[in-house]
Amino acid sequence: MNTESLSILNIFMFILGGLSLVSGLGVVLSRKSLNSALCLVATMFLIAGQFALMRADFIATLQVMLYAGAIMILFVFVIMLLGVEKDAEKLSFSVPSYFSISFVFLFFGILFFGFRDGIITSAKSIVEGSYLDQLESTTEPINNFVTGTSSNPVLVPDLVVTPKSIGNSILVDQVVSFQAIGILLLASIVGAAFLAQTKKAPLLPGRGLKAMKEKHGSSTN
């Protein structure tokens, strides 16, 4: 087992990770749904920060643009549109039932069982003594998680993700999934517009070009 050493990057990682836990708790424990939305935005920004710290720049940018930028805007719109906080005194937070809380703890226990060895050794090595190191640390892929099956042997530089490699992967290797994502987005637009329509805001005004022409024709006559 290689001995751990703390670097400055690790300190930042601890800070970001701890803050994201706090804002995650804020999502669940806020009384008002708007506060939950804002805490979720903060969580997404913090997670984007963690991505950037791991030098996954593309994904960090996407996280900010897509998740924090587009999806959360949708959420805030819907929360404002529905105006469910009009009677905000009503506590929208049921007393947690024993079943759900015990399920969550059980589940976390199961997860921890999977990560146990690595976490305990890391914690031990921090406690036993470590020193602030230089910024860079080399990656060593061999560990007790993956026994010699990582796709590259030992001495390789860190993963460099360029637009070229992303494009190659998306458009050559995963082209089927890429096209399927296009179909998925179309299907979700159709489904969402269909479900959200009302009489005053129908999905297709007048059902087709012919009907539209008739309407316009009769109004200009």
Partner: peptide, 12 residues
């Protein structure tokens, strides 16, 4: 992706 395409359409 296939799982979600199936699911989302059936939700709608």
């Amino acid at each position: 992706v296939g799982f979600e395409l199936l699911s989302l359409s059936v939700y709608a």
